[in-house]
Amino acid sequence: MHAAVLVFPGSNCDRDLAVAFEKSGAKVSMVWHKDAALPAGVDIVGVPGGFSYGDYLRCGAIAANSPICGALKTHVERGGYALGICNGFQVLTETHLLPGALRRNAGIKYICDTVELQVATADSAFTSGYTKDAVINVPIAHHDGNYFADDETLARLEGEDRIAFTYAKNPNGSVRDIAGILSENRRVLGMMPHPERALEATHGNTDGVAMFRALMDTMATA
């Protein structure tokens, strides 16, 4: 398995995500935002959390137009996997690889907490290690995690079983309590919570392990 983790100026969860992939058995390449191509043979692209380009203009907007995101789009269009966490989710919506947008939290404040997530579907490489409707604990740390999509898009996401995770108690005002969504081909996941921060006993929580393990198992057999 070969994972690429994108690095933008202001990314700060890139190394955590790299460790998460490595611990699950992947070879990891860190890829700078100015590169216009991914290394050969990349199976999954990780778009990490942080504050790409200082969150200027809108979170993820400048990153979405960086050279490496052109390569990310090509990778996804060819059926490649991608995982965007936090700022990475914002980048994936700004590139239109996932629908909707992330707004300022309804309560205005930045939230750093561990929240309960409900697994809304087990039907994806990312969530097959969980049972549908299971509740897992995952850290969140964001100011702009308030998911929005119009009613038509929401109906489509629900109809196609593409909502991956919902918040048990909505912390940020997201429509339909949405914490993470899948692409049409179910190979791209964007989520605000940080599964890469819930991998080891020292994190105080290992609920993220099943995601990375299932992902590696699926890609290994693909």
């Binding site: 203009l57 809108r58 907007a61 400048i62 137009n65 919506t93 700004e94 909707g100 707004r103 929005f148």
Partner: peptide
């Protein structure tokens, strides 16, 4: 359309 506004919101 391409950058300055996110026309979703």
């Amino acid at each position: 359309e391409k950058l300055l506004a996110n026309t979703v919101i």
